[in-house]
Amino acid sequence: MTPTLLGRWQTRIVLFATVGALFTLPFALGIVGPDASGIPFLVLFYLALLGLIWDVLYNYLQQFRWDRDWPAVFQLIAGLWEAIFFSYLVEFIDLPGLEPGVPLQWFAIHYSLVWLGMFAATHTLMRILFPYWRFNGGQLF
């Protein structure tokens, strides 16, 4: 893919708000995971927020590539990196609303599902619903 910064931001926000929220719902309702709470949504919110900052870095790195592209494998590496960073962050910093010691295995499951859902959506659903999306560097508006 060849996203632009604006495209990364827009796509991230839209996907977190839709696919991300959908995959978070079972965790928030307690169908999956420890018990029903708003925490999974808060985690999702922080991930999205941090992601908007990571996007600036990714976009910068893209400039060093002749094709100015972002291979799918980079999407995966970025996804792993964001997860690791976040799990360390909650260990050491008190994010408002999140107590340290979020159960790591549940975070890993929640995060993997959200990430896989969004990864799949960028390669399928986004293209099918928005034919112009891939020509606009991921911009929707």
Binding site: T2, T4, F64, W66, R68, D69, F135, G137
Partner: peptide, 29 residues
């Protein structure tokens, strides 16, 4: 800018006939 095209044995390489971002990335804009 910050990027350079790769060369070997006097052939210049690129996956397609333009850098990829020409189709739908920042180079297109």
């Amino acid at each position: 800018k910050k990027a350079e095209r790769f060369v070997e044995n006097h052939f210049e390489f690129q996956p397609f006939n333009w850098p990829k971002a020409c189709w739908g990335g920042d180079l297109r804009f």
